[in-house]
Amino acid sequence: MCLAVPARILECQDDDALVDMQGNRLRVCRVLTPEAGPGAWVLVHAGFCIATIDESEALTTWDYLKQSYGPELAETLEPQLGTADSS
């Protein structure tokens, strides 16, 4: 019923948040998750953050998406995930 993708909040302004999904940046509404600020991981559905999730869960899903990639490309993803971890 409901497609939802984990994303990381890059910046917030009032009710809006700019989130990153692995190189796709989307403006979403965060009224349903007012507790989520920059750096937080959220689940995004139909332009809204619907839940805050912990980082390891988000990375599990990203990892699952990553597994659908070709072998060489999967390796190029590693450094990016590393950056996300440390920032």
Binding site: V5, Q22, N24, S68, G70, L73, T76
Partner: peptide, 15 residues
């Protein structure tokens, strides 16, 4: 597993 696709495209499609 062998199909080349970028992580960015994979996520955009999922979204």
């Amino acid at each position: 597993a062998a199909i080349p696709i970028s992580p960015t495209a994979r996520h955009a499609a999922e979204m």
